[in-house]
């Protein structure tokens, strides 16, 4: 269970998301409460159509919830009366994204894909490139730094994508089925990596997954059912 003595990196209170209006309205989220703490990797499970993607989009400041409150690192970014104005800046500086497919920019090399984020945040090129190289080293893909994206293997591309998510040192990372295209061994490697990074950078990581292979590795997880999040204790199984 979560350590309530610490300040949560992510806190959701009564989050509601309704699509449409009137009799045709569909409520994807029906009052979600959730807390994720710095350095923690939490699983987000649920069948298709349960509202996982909607929740991720609300958390990622991509769509606005209909009601409720989102607090990131102690700052309210959305509630019924107020929402942060510059969502792009929020996403750029405070949230890292990892997708099912790496979605790297194909016309940039591995280093540039990672250094682009600090550059977008206004960091000098040299500083951004140094940061990218550091992360590629941590993720063990520094030897592919100058490679084109089309030249990377699936695993290498996913590690570059993880490095990109960490590039601006965000307190939160949202990972949407990051192990889906990988075999079971590589899935566990990615999960171990995410856990190490969460511990190293004190990053809160939410992993949306269907992968039965990695579900037992979570110490804590939320299961989305009928638009509500139910907290469960995970097995916390080792990664090998």
């Amino acid at each position: 269970m979560a350590d309530h003595a610490k300040k949560p990196a992510i806190k959701l209170e009564g989050l509601v998301k309704r699509y449409g209006s009137g009799s045709s309205a569909v409520e994807a989220l029906k009052g979600v409460d959730m807390e994720v703490y710095p350095g923690e990797v939490v699983g987000l499970l649920g069948p298709s159509g349960s509202g996982k993607t909607t929740l991720l989009q609300c958390l990622g400041a991509v769509i606005d919830p209909t009601a409720g409150r989102i607090t990131l690192g102690g700052d309210v970014t959305f509630d019924d009366e107020w929402k942060i104005s510059d969502l792009r800046e929020l996403r750029r500086d405070r949230i890292g994204f990892i997708f099912q497919a790496p979605y790297l920019i194909p016309f940039l090399d591995a280093t540039e894909n990672v250094s682009l984020l600090p550059m977008l945040a206004g960091k000098p090129n040299s500083e951004a490139t140094a940061r990218a190289m550091d992360l590629l080293k941590v993720l063990d893909v520094a030897h592919r730094a100058g490679a084109r994206i089309s030249e990377l293997s699936g695993g290498e591309a996913q590690r570059v994508a993880i490095a990109r998510a960490l590039a601006n040192n965000p307190p939160i990372i949202l990972a949407d089925e990051p192990t889906a295209p990988l075999d079971s061994q590589r899935s566990l490697t990615v999960m171990r990596m995410l856990n190490e990074l969460a511990a190293q950078y004190r990053t809160a990581i939410i992993v949306v997954t269907h992968d039965d292979n990695i579900i037992p590795t979570f110490k804590r997880l939320y299961r989305i059912r009928e638009g509500k999040a139910h907290e469960e204790a995970g097995e916390g199984r080792p990664f090998s």
Binding site: G60, V62, R88, E89, R91, R92, D93, F97, F99, Y103, I105, P106, F107, L116, L117, L120, A121, R164
Partner: peptide, 18 residues
């Protein structure tokens, strides 16, 4: 042909002017 990459750029915080 690169609309997905543009969506990713927007997601990771690239401003419209970029």
């Amino acid at each position: 042909s690169k609309i997905k990459e543009i969506a990713v750029l927007k997601l990771i915080g690239a401003k419209n002017r970029v």
